[in-house]
Design a protein around this nucleic acid. Structure first.
Length: 221
DNA sequence: GCCACGATGTGCT
DNA sequence: GCACATCGTGGCT
């Protein structure tokens, strides 16, 4: 069943720590922005961010909740840098750090829309060019955090990378006319699962397929 | 289209 | 040990 996202927003409680806004504002602000990836072989791909999640050290679901470690140190560094981690042994995911130096927070980039270089993305995801992909493969090019990382060739070599610089950079862009942001619970977590810290461009076909999408509600502001 | 399940590394209890 | 901010495949409707 669809949950009513607007009925009870945990973030609207007056006791919320104002520092929670660092990750949330970053996650919302990244929607619509472009990721430009220049590959070592000279090829390029451009995708548009359509789905993000907010995480910070006050949040039990976050890697930074238990404090700074060697693994998560990038999250405690300056904003707009890459925190890359490996998960389930075979995948990578990328966060863009946010907030002031010393506060562990950032936004997980969950999904993006291919803008340029579809063929390049396809080659990194499958041993095939875009034209030979099945319909399912085309849908699944960049619609999940690990799929996105595979398509963009993001691995631990980009850990701590400054996201304003090549070969992986974010070009800030706003939403297009008529687009709006919705929020839902985050996907695939158990702790703090009720918090509405996942943000999507409403109605965009490239977000992670999830029953949560049907109940997504427009955010106010 | 949907669901179940297996593959696998790493940090932390 | 075990829990993971996951995904691909195969088998089925």
């Amino acid at each position: 069943m669809a949950y009513d996202g607007a009925a009870s927003l945990p973030e609207s409680r007056s006791s919320a720590d104002p520092r929670e806004q660092y990750a949330e504002r970053a996650a919302i602000g990244l929607l619509g922005s472009l990721i430009v990836r220049d590959f070592p072989d000279g090829t390029r791909a451009v995708v548009r961010i359509v789905e993000t999640e907010a995480y910070d050290q006050l949040d039990p679901a976050s890697h930074t909740y238990r404090g700074r470690t060697e693994r998560n140190r990038a999250m405690f560094g300056p904003a707009n840098h890459a925190y890359v981690y490996s998960i389930y042994g075979m995948h990578h995911c990328i966060n863009v750090t946010a907030g002031p130096d010393g506060f562990g927070c950032g936004a997980l980039i969950r999904a993006a829309q291919p803008i340029e270089g579809r063929d390049v993305l396809a080659h990194h995801r499958y041993p095939a060019s875009d034209g030979t992909l099945t319909a399912a493969q085309r849908r699944n090019l960049t619609n999940g955090p690990a799929k996105l990382c595979q398509a963009l060739g993001i691995g631990m070599d980009l850990y701590g990378h400054d996201m304003s610089q090549p070969p992986l950079r974010i070009v800030p862009c706003g939403l297009e006319a008529g687009e709006s942001v919705a929020r839902t619970p985050r996907i695939g977590i158990r702790k703090a699962a009720d918090r509405l810290r996942r943000y999507i461009i409403m109605g965009n076909p490239c977000v992670t397929p999830s029953p949560l999408n049907a109940g997504a509600r427009d955010i106010e502001n």
